[in-house]
């Protein structure tokens, strides 16, 4: 890929960004390519050695706050048109409750998912406590001379420790997955604000 094609693709994918910000970022990558060419690389090699356009867009999206993207998208170049303002005010009783409901659904979904994960951590913690209780009970069994029940208690210690490790692992994997998914959803949401003009 040539430098111009690379920069044009990047520009079209980031077209929803504020103009100054967009130019800064494009010139940053143009300088990076130029520096590589000066080092003796060919134009194609210099671009091949860089991150892909997708990666760069995703990286930039994670840096820019949502509010800035929405502001840039909503703000018209030549001021607000009167009919748009009137329509916005007249339809306020419809769009505002919908917006609130959408936010509430998203929030409750988030709470529900995290409640499940927290309950998994609590189960893992309670299994650790159960294993401690089993240690005491097993000691008591052996002290009272009930060897068979002691052996049973010994097995219960192992089962509790094993289950607590598995539950902790499951909780960690789920937390990481949810954080990753939330990040991807946020990037996707932000990306939907830019690059439409491409």
């Amino acid at each position: 890929m040539k430098k111009e094609a690379f920069l044009n693709e990047l520009r079209s994918r980031l077209s929803g960004l504020p103009q100054g910000d967009l130019e800064d970022r494009i010139s940053f990558y143009a300088e990076m390519i130029d520096a590589r060419i000066e080092e003796g690389m060919s134009e194609e090699d210099a671009i091949a050695g860089m991150e892909s356009v997708d990666q760069i867009v995703s990286q930039i999206m994670s840096e820019i706050p949502v509010s800035q993207l929405v502001k840039t998208k909503v703000k018209p170049e030549k001021g607000h048109k009167a009919w748009k303002v009137v329509l916005l005010i007249c339809l306020f009783p419809i769009w505002f409750p919908l917006l609130i409901a959408f936010g509430a659904v998203l929030f409750s979904l988030l709470i529900a998912v995290w409640s499940v994960i927290i309950s998994f951590y609590i189960v893992a913690g309670s299994l650790v406590i159960a294993s401690l209780a089993c240690i005491i009970a097993t000691g008591a069994y052996f002290a009272l001379g009930d060897i068979i029940a002691g052996v049973g208690g010994f097995g219960a210690i192992f089962v509790c420790i094993g289950l607590s490790i598995l539950f902790f692992l499951l909780s960690i994997v789920m937390s990481k997955g949810i954080v990753k998914l939330s990040h991807k959803m946020l990037i996707g949401f932000k990306t939907s604000f830019v690059g439409k003009e491409a």
């Binding site: 052996v151 049973g152 010994f154 097995g155 219960a156 210690i157 192992f158 089962v159 509790c160 420790i161 094993g162 289950l163 607590s164 490790i165 598995l166 692992l169």
Partner: peptide, 12 residues
């Protein structure tokens, strides 16, 4: 975790 669980289940 699996080793502990299986060993415990066998002992039980």
């Amino acid at each position: 975790g699996l080793v502990f669980f299986i060993a415990g289940a066998v002992i039980c």
